[in-house]
């Protein structure tokens, strides 16, 4: 637990942090790698730094970008019934909603399953790259990280893979379906995105960004 200090009101604001979930004030402290700091009031985990996490985040994020790039073009699923067959890519899946009033939904689907996860990975690389190499951060690295945070709930690649398995069950009785390379790429992406989520300690990252920006 983080110390809730009785005389915090006399402390300078830059030495304090406030819990975003209950507003409790805590003294800003370095949390050791492997330890977890919980809020003294609402018990939410505020910091849980990991060893070597910056290089890990960069590796994972780069892999996300590369894998996503290949998942767009490769075949996703192939269906065959009564001698007729059809192969579809993820891109075509998004543009299934291209008729009339449903058209905007195509862009939404494309955004939440591909663009947002890729953008988030790219923003993280931009914000973290100099930190991993012990240099001061790039210009507007804080804006990049804030955007990455805003995008987080809208990254739905894992929900899409889950939807794919539901769709497979729905047509399993009617036709033969074979899984293409893009399907396996998406399964890999879900794994990478999950690992990436757990490699990042948000508040340690914000502190490091601030500290390394100082001359």
């Amino acid at each position: 637990m983080m110390a809730a200090h009785p005389t915090l009101s006399n402390t300078r604001p830059e030495q304090l942090i406030a819990c975003p979930f209950c507003d409790a004030l805590h003294l800003r402290a370095r949390v050791k790698v492997g330890q977890r700091a919980r809020c003294s009031r609402c018990h939410t985990v505020l910091m849980a730094p990991r060893a070597g996490s910056y290089l890990q985040v960069i590796t994972l994020s780069l892999s996300v970008v590369i894998l996503m790039g290949s998942a767009v073009f490769f075949p996703f699923l192939t269906i065959a019934v009564a001698g007729v067959s059809r192969t579809t890519s993820v891109y075509e899946v998004a543009f299934a909603y291209s008729d009339g009033i449903l058209q905007p939904l195509s862009f939404v689907v494309l955004a939440v399953i591909m663009l947002v996860p890729t953008l988030r990975a790219a923003l993280l690389i931009y914000a973290i790259w100099p930190l991993a190499h012990g240099r001061p951060p790039f210009a507007r690295a804080t804006t990049a990280l804030r955007l990455a945070e805003t995008a987080r709930p809208w990254s739905m690649a894992e929900v899409f893979v889950f939807g794919t398995s539901v769709a497979l069950v729905k047509i399993a009785g009617l036709a033969t379906v074979s899984l293409g390379p893009a399907f396996w790429a998406f399964c890999g992406l879900v794994l990478l995105l999950t690992l990436n989520e757990h490699a990042i300690c948000k508040w340690t990252l914000w502190q490091d960004l601030e500290d390394s920006a100082r001359p």
Binding site: L77, I79, V81, A82, V84, R86, T88, E92, V93, A94, F95, A96, Y97, L105, V109, V112, I113, P153, W154, M156, V159, F160, F162, G163, T164, V166, A167, K170, I171, A175, V177
Partner: peptide, 20 residues
């Protein structure tokens, strides 16, 4: 919250695939 989107994706996948 995000997991409710699953049906929207199911419909997209089925409509893209089942065009026979």
């Amino acid at each position: 919250g995000r997991w409710s989107m699953v049906d929207v994706f199911v419909v997209a996948i089925l409509s893209a695939l089942v065009q026979l």
